[in-house]
Simulated assay, not measured.
Amino acid sequence: MSAKSKVLPVPKLASISAVASAAGVSIATVSRVLNGTKAVNADTRARVEAAVEALGYRTNALARSLMRGETRLLLVLVPDFANPYFAEIIKGVESVTRQRGYGLVIAEASQTLSRHSAELDSLYNKLADGVISLARYADLKPLLGEIPDLPWVACSEHVGDSEVPSVSIDHRQAAIDAVQYLINRGHQRIALLSASEDYMWARQRHDGYEYALRRANLPVEPQLVRIARGTDYVHGMEAAGALLALEAPPTAVFAVADTLAIGAIKAFRRVGRRVPEDVAVMGFDDIPVAQVFEPALTTIAQPVRELGAAAAELLLKRLAGEPAESLILQHALIVRASA
Rank of each mutant, 00 (worst) to 15 (best):
L314Q: 13
L333R: 06
P84R: 08
L77R: 05
V48Q: 07
T112W: 01
R229E: 11
D170Q: 09
A18S: 11
A252P: 01
A174I: 06
E146L: 15
A248M: 12
R226E: 15
V234H: 13
A50I: 12
I183S: 11
A202F: 01
A280G: 13
L120Y: 07
E325P: 08
I227D: 00
V78M: 05
S168E: 07
L13T: 12
A23Q: 01
V153W: 03
V78A: 04
R68S: 14
V304L: 08
M237R: 15
P219Q: 15
Q173N: 10
H206N: 12
L316V: 03
A191L: 09
Q111M: 08
I90F: 04
V292R: 03
E322V: 02
L307P: 12
Q173C: 09
G241I: 03
L127P: 04
A339Y: 05
I265Q: 08
R172G: 10
A61K: 14
S122F: 13
M1V: 10
R98G: 02
K4P: 03
Q291I: 13
A216D: 10
I147Y: 06
L66N: 14
K126H: 12
R115G: 03
E49P: 03
L297G: 08
E94L: 04
S133A: 06
P79S: 04
A280L: 07
S26A: 11
L224F: 14
L74R: 01
V279Q: 09
